[in-house]
Protein backbone atom coordinates (compact mmCIF):
# COMPACT_ATOMS: atom_id res chain seq x y z
CA UNK A 1 0.00 0.00 0.00
CA UNK A 2 2.87 2.22 0.81
CA UNK A 3 4.18 2.20 -2.73
CA UNK A 4 0.82 3.12 -4.25
CA UNK A 5 0.18 6.06 -1.90
CA UNK A 6 -3.18 7.70 -2.51
CA UNK A 7 -3.84 5.28 -5.37
CA UNK A 8 -4.25 2.44 -2.87
CA UNK A 9 -7.24 1.72 -0.68
CA UNK A 10 -7.92 -0.89 1.93
CA UNK A 11 -10.78 -3.31 1.37
CA UNK A 12 -12.45 -4.56 4.51
CA UNK A 13 -16.15 -5.39 4.19
CA UNK A 14 -16.36 -3.77 0.80
CA UNK A 15 -19.98 -2.74 1.22
CA UNK A 16 -19.21 0.89 0.52
CA UNK A 17 -15.99 0.88 -1.41
CA UNK A 18 -17.08 -1.53 -4.15
CA UNK A 19 -20.17 0.54 -4.84
CA UNK A 20 -18.08 3.71 -4.87
CA UNK A 21 -15.56 2.16 -7.25
CA UNK A 22 -18.32 1.13 -9.65
CA UNK A 23 -19.65 4.65 -9.52
CA UNK A 24 -16.16 5.91 -10.47
CA UNK A 25 -16.07 7.89 -7.26
CA UNK A 26 -12.29 7.68 -7.11
CA UNK A 27 -9.33 6.65 -9.11
CA UNK A 28 -7.30 3.87 -7.55
CA UNK A 29 -4.79 1.38 -8.77
CA UNK A 30 -4.60 -1.01 -5.86
CA UNK A 31 -7.22 -2.42 -3.57
CA UNK A 32 -5.76 -4.34 -0.64
CA UNK A 33 -7.90 -6.93 1.10
CA UNK A 34 -7.08 -6.42 4.77
CA UNK A 35 -9.47 -9.06 6.09
CA UNK A 36 -6.67 -11.62 6.14
CA UNK A 37 -4.48 -9.57 8.47
CA UNK A 38 -4.96 -11.20 11.90
CA UNK A 39 -4.55 -7.99 13.87
CA UNK A 40 -7.41 -6.36 11.99
CA UNK A 41 -9.66 -9.29 12.81
CA UNK A 42 -9.26 -9.28 16.56
CA UNK A 43 -12.06 -8.50 18.94
CA UNK A 44 -10.66 -8.41 22.47
CA UNK A 45 -11.61 -7.08 25.85
CA UNK A 46 -9.82 -6.66 29.13
CA UNK A 47 -11.14 -5.02 32.25
CA UNK A 48 -8.20 -2.64 32.38
CA UNK A 49 -7.77 -1.82 28.70
CA UNK A 50 -11.36 -2.01 27.56
CA UNK A 51 -12.47 -3.17 24.13
CA UNK A 52 -10.45 -3.36 20.97
CA UNK A 53 -12.27 -3.97 17.71
CA UNK A 54 -10.13 -4.79 14.69
CA UNK A 55 -10.85 -2.64 11.68
CA UNK A 56 -11.94 -5.65 9.63
CA UNK A 57 -14.32 -7.18 12.19
CA UNK A 58 -17.80 -7.30 10.64
CA UNK A 59 -20.76 -5.77 12.42
CA UNK A 60 -22.47 -9.09 13.01
CA UNK A 61 -19.47 -10.30 15.04
CA UNK A 62 -19.56 -7.13 17.08
CA UNK A 63 -23.21 -7.15 18.03
CA UNK A 64 -23.30 -10.89 18.64
CA UNK A 65 -20.33 -10.73 20.98
CA UNK A 66 -21.48 -11.31 24.55
CA UNK A 67 -18.94 -8.89 26.06
CA UNK A 68 -20.00 -6.15 23.70
CA UNK A 69 -23.65 -6.88 24.43
CA UNK A 70 -23.00 -6.67 28.14
CA UNK A 71 -20.59 -3.78 28.37
CA UNK A 72 -21.07 -1.74 25.21
CA UNK A 73 -24.78 -1.98 24.33
CA UNK A 74 -24.50 1.35 22.53
CA UNK A 75 -22.11 -0.29 20.08
CA UNK A 76 -24.68 -3.00 19.52
CA UNK A 77 -27.26 -0.30 18.79
CA UNK A 78 -25.03 1.12 16.11
CA UNK A 79 -23.66 -2.05 14.52
CA UNK A 80 -27.10 -3.66 14.45
CA UNK A 81 -28.69 -1.08 12.24
CA UNK A 82 -26.18 -0.82 9.46
CA UNK A 83 -27.82 -2.21 6.32
CA UNK A 84 -29.52 -5.57 6.35
CA UNK A 85 -28.02 -8.82 7.62
CA UNK A 86 -26.16 -9.36 4.34
CA UNK A 87 -24.41 -6.03 4.83
CA UNK A 88 -23.80 -6.64 8.54
CA UNK A 89 -22.02 -9.87 7.63
CA UNK A 90 -19.45 -7.84 5.75
CA UNK A 91 -19.53 -4.23 6.82
CA UNK A 92 -17.07 -3.11 9.49
CA UNK A 93 -17.06 -0.15 11.79
CA UNK A 94 -13.49 0.43 10.66
CA UNK A 95 -14.70 0.81 7.10
CA UNK A 96 -17.58 2.92 8.28
CA UNK A 97 -15.14 5.23 10.00
CA UNK A 98 -12.70 5.42 7.09
CA UNK A 99 -15.57 6.09 4.70
CA UNK A 100 -16.11 9.21 6.84
CA UNK A 101 -19.64 9.82 5.68
CA UNK A 102 -21.28 12.69 7.56
CA UNK A 103 -24.16 10.31 8.24
CA UNK A 104 -22.00 7.28 9.05
CA UNK A 105 -24.10 5.20 11.35
CA UNK A 106 -21.60 4.06 13.92
CA UNK A 107 -19.47 7.15 14.18
CA UNK A 108 -21.49 9.21 16.71
CA UNK A 109 -21.67 6.10 18.88
CA UNK A 110 -17.90 5.76 18.72
CA UNK A 111 -17.39 9.41 19.57
CA UNK A 112 -19.76 9.18 22.53
CA UNK A 113 -17.93 6.12 23.78
CA UNK A 114 -14.59 7.98 23.64
CA UNK A 115 -13.24 5.59 21.06
CA UNK A 116 -9.81 6.02 19.54
CA UNK A 117 -8.70 4.96 16.10
CA UNK A 118 -5.42 3.06 16.15
CA UNK A 119 -3.47 3.65 12.98
CA UNK A 120 -0.36 1.90 11.66
CA UNK A 121 2.22 2.89 9.11
CA UNK A 122 5.91 2.38 8.53
CA UNK A 123 6.38 5.11 11.12
CA UNK A 124 4.64 2.96 13.73
CA UNK A 125 1.36 3.21 15.57
CA UNK A 126 -0.59 6.32 16.49
CA UNK A 127 -4.00 6.91 18.04
CA UNK A 128 -6.55 9.44 16.88
CA UNK A 129 -9.66 10.31 18.90
CA UNK A 130 -12.62 9.36 16.69
CA UNK A 131 -14.06 12.87 16.82
CA UNK A 132 -10.91 14.06 15.08
CA UNK A 133 -10.70 11.20 12.59
CA UNK A 134 -13.14 12.52 10.01
CA UNK A 135 -11.97 15.75 8.43
CA UNK A 136 -14.62 16.38 5.79
CA UNK A 137 -17.41 14.67 3.93
CA UNK A 138 -15.91 11.37 2.76
CA UNK A 139 -12.47 12.42 3.97
CA UNK A 140 -10.66 10.76 6.82
CA UNK A 141 -7.50 11.88 8.54
CA UNK A 142 -5.36 8.98 7.36
CA UNK A 143 -2.17 9.92 5.58
CA UNK A 144 -0.86 8.02 2.57
CA UNK A 145 0.53 4.72 3.70
CA UNK A 146 -1.48 4.67 6.90
CA UNK A 147 -3.87 1.89 7.74
CA UNK A 148 -6.59 1.82 10.37
CA UNK A 149 -5.86 -1.20 12.52
CA UNK A 150 -8.42 -1.11 15.27
CA UNK A 151 -10.75 0.97 17.33
CA UNK A 152 -10.24 1.06 21.07
CA UNK A 153 -12.94 1.75 23.61
CA UNK A 154 -12.14 2.57 27.27
CA UNK A 155 -13.64 0.23 29.86
CA UNK A 156 -17.17 1.18 30.86
CA UNK A 157 -17.40 3.23 34.02
CA UNK A 158 -19.62 2.49 36.96
CA UNK A 159 -23.13 3.98 36.63
CA UNK A 160 -22.59 4.76 33.01
CA UNK A 161 -24.92 4.30 30.10
CA UNK A 162 -24.90 5.05 26.44
CA UNK A 163 -27.26 4.87 23.51
CA UNK A 164 -27.27 5.41 19.79
CA UNK A 165 -30.31 6.47 17.77
CA UNK A 166 -30.83 7.39 14.20
CA UNK A 167 -33.80 8.58 12.26
CA UNK A 168 -34.62 7.06 8.86
CA UNK A 169 -37.85 7.16 6.86
CA UNK A 170 -37.92 3.38 6.44
CA UNK A 171 -37.35 0.95 9.27
CA UNK A 172 -34.16 -0.55 7.84
CA UNK A 173 -31.87 -0.26 4.83
CA UNK A 174 -31.60 3.48 4.88
CA UNK A 175 -29.24 6.38 5.44
CA UNK A 176 -29.67 8.47 8.55
CA UNK A 177 -31.44 11.80 8.22
CA UNK A 178 -29.86 12.49 11.58
CA UNK A 179 -28.22 10.30 14.20
CA UNK A 180 -27.10 10.80 17.76
CA UNK A 181 -24.83 8.91 20.13
CA UNK A 182 -24.77 9.74 23.81
CA UNK A 183 -22.86 8.40 26.77
CA UNK A 184 -23.09 9.57 30.34
CA UNK A 185 -22.00 8.68 33.83
CA UNK A 186 -24.12 9.28 36.92
CA UNK A 187 -23.13 9.81 40.48
CA UNK A 188 -23.47 6.98 42.94
CA UNK A 189 -27.01 8.06 43.77
CA UNK A 190 -27.79 7.85 40.09
CA UNK A 191 -29.33 11.28 40.06
CA UNK A 192 -26.70 13.69 38.85
CA UNK A 193 -24.69 13.56 35.68
CA UNK A 194 -20.96 13.37 36.28
CA UNK A 195 -19.80 13.20 32.72
CA UNK A 196 -21.47 13.25 29.35
CA UNK A 197 -20.61 12.99 25.68
CA UNK A 198 -23.14 13.76 23.01
CA UNK A 199 -22.24 13.22 19.36
CA UNK A 200 -24.28 14.10 16.30
CA UNK A 201 -24.27 12.78 12.76
CA UNK A 202 -25.68 13.91 9.41
CA UNK A 203 -25.96 17.49 10.59
CA UNK A 204 -22.56 18.78 9.54
CA UNK A 205 -19.69 17.97 7.19
CA UNK A 206 -18.44 15.39 9.68
CA UNK A 207 -19.93 13.69 12.72
CA UNK A 208 -19.58 16.09 15.62
CA UNK A 209 -18.93 16.03 19.33
CA UNK A 210 -21.50 18.39 20.82
CA UNK A 211 -19.14 19.78 23.44
CA UNK A 212 -21.32 22.59 24.73
CA UNK A 213 -24.35 20.36 25.22
CA UNK A 214 -22.20 17.67 26.81
CA UNK A 215 -20.68 20.12 29.23
CA UNK A 216 -24.05 21.66 30.02
CA UNK A 217 -25.39 18.36 31.24
CA UNK A 218 -22.50 17.71 33.58
CA UNK A 219 -23.48 18.42 37.17
CA UNK A 220 -27.18 18.57 36.32
CA UNK A 221 -29.75 16.46 38.02
CA UNK A 222 -31.60 14.10 35.70
CA UNK A 223 -34.98 15.52 34.82
CA UNK A 224 -37.12 15.98 31.76
CA UNK A 225 -36.18 19.64 31.84
CA UNK A 226 -32.45 19.13 32.02
CA UNK A 227 -32.51 16.60 29.21
CA UNK A 228 -34.71 18.89 27.15
CA UNK A 229 -32.41 21.85 27.67
CA UNK A 230 -29.37 19.76 26.80
CA UNK A 231 -31.05 18.66 23.60
CA UNK A 232 -31.87 22.25 22.72
CA UNK A 233 -28.22 23.20 23.17
CA UNK A 234 -27.15 20.24 21.03
CA UNK A 235 -29.28 21.66 18.23
CA UNK A 236 -27.17 24.81 18.21
CA UNK A 237 -24.09 23.03 16.94
CA UNK A 238 -25.98 21.35 14.12
CA UNK A 239 -25.27 22.96 10.74
CA UNK A 240 -26.99 20.60 8.34
CA UNK A 241 -27.77 21.01 4.68
CA UNK A 242 -30.97 20.33 2.82
CA UNK A 243 -30.62 17.39 0.51
CA UNK A 244 -32.83 14.61 -0.78
CA UNK A 245 -32.70 12.85 2.56
CA UNK A 246 -33.81 15.73 4.72
CA UNK A 247 -34.19 19.44 5.18
CA UNK A 248 -32.24 21.79 7.42
CA UNK A 249 -35.22 22.40 9.70
CA UNK A 250 -36.10 18.75 9.88
CA UNK A 251 -32.55 17.76 10.77
CA UNK A 252 -32.09 20.36 13.46
CA UNK A 253 -35.43 19.41 14.93
CA UNK A 254 -34.47 15.72 14.85
CA UNK A 255 -31.25 16.44 16.73
CA UNK A 256 -33.41 17.68 19.58
CA UNK A 257 -35.76 14.72 19.48
CA UNK A 258 -33.06 12.09 19.12
CA UNK A 259 -30.79 13.63 21.73
CA UNK A 260 -33.62 13.70 24.24
CA UNK A 261 -34.63 10.12 23.50
CA UNK A 262 -31.06 8.84 23.49
CA UNK A 263 -30.33 10.56 26.79
CA UNK A 264 -33.40 9.01 28.39
CA UNK A 265 -32.35 5.55 27.27
CA UNK A 266 -28.76 6.13 28.34
CA UNK A 267 -29.97 7.21 31.76
CA UNK A 268 -32.05 4.06 32.03
CA UNK A 269 -29.02 2.00 31.16
CA UNK A 270 -26.86 3.90 33.65
CA UNK A 271 -29.43 3.29 36.33
CA UNK A 272 -29.50 -0.36 35.37
CA UNK A 273 -33.21 -0.22 34.70
Amino acid sequence: MDSYGSKAKALAGGTDILVQLRGNRFDIEMLVDVKSIPELNELSYTVSEGLSVGAAVPCIRIYEDSVVQQSYPCLVDAAFLIGGIQIQSRATIGGNLCNASPSGDTIPALIALEAEAVVFSKRGYRSIPVEDFCVGPGQNGLQDGELLVSIKFPPPKLYSGAHFLRFIPRNEMDIAVANVGVALTLDSKKQTVESARIALGAVGPTPLLATKASEFLVGKEISDDSLYETAEIAKQIASPITDMRGTINQRIHLVGVLTRRALQKAVERAKGV
Binding site: G14, T15, D33, P58, Q86
Partner: peptide
Protein backbone atom coordinates in the same frame (compact mmCIF):
# COMPACT_ATOMS: atom_id res chain seq x y z
CA UNK B 1 -22.96 -15.86 6.78
CA UNK B 2 -25.36 -14.42 4.26
CA UNK B 3 -23.80 -11.81 2.01
CA UNK B 4 -24.74 -9.88 -1.09
CA UNK B 5 -22.59 -11.57 -3.72
CA UNK B 6 -22.47 -8.32 -5.68
CA UNK B 7 -20.45 -6.82 -2.83
CA UNK B 8 -17.93 -9.65 -2.65
CA UNK B 9 -15.01 -9.70 -5.05
CA UNK B 10 -14.62 -13.08 -6.65
CA UNK B 11 -10.97 -13.23 -5.61
CA UNK B 12 -12.05 -12.96 -1.98
Amino acid sequence: QIVDSCLVLAVE
